[in-house]
């Protein structure tokens, strides 16, 4: 996996306890078209607090261009933004 840290649009559901579960996200590709990727499975979730900034990190599995790939999504709590962290 390589770090790419791109802002993404995403759909997630939240539990009563406030834990988000990403379902799918879409990203603007180089040829200016949107590409939607479905999250098949969340492998694990961790929380980090680097520089005092809380972020949730999700390692996920999903189909990208017909290949099953592992990627990491990040959710920044202070701004409510989603990022594609690594792919």
């Amino acid at each position: 996996m390589k770090i790419c840290m791109q802002p993404i649009e995403s759909i997630a559901w939240f539990t009563k306890e406030g834990i988000p579960h990403p379902l799918r996200y879409r990203i603007l590709t180089e040829d200016k078209t949107y590409k939607t990727i479905k999250v098949n499975q969340v492998l694990f979730r961790t929380e980090e607090k680097i520089a005092g900034n809380r972020m949730l990190l999700f390692r996920c599995q999903g189909e990208v261009n017909g290949i099953l790939k592992i990627f990491e999504l990040k959710y920044e709590l202070s701004t409510c933004r989603w990022y594609l962290y690594k792919i």
Binding site: I3, M5, E48, I50, A51, N53
Partner: peptide
């Protein structure tokens, strides 16, 4: 250090 760790958290290599 704070600036550096903040940048790295946001994907700066």
């Amino acid at each position: 250090s704070w600036e550096a760790s903040h940048r790295m958290q946001h994907g700066d290599p």
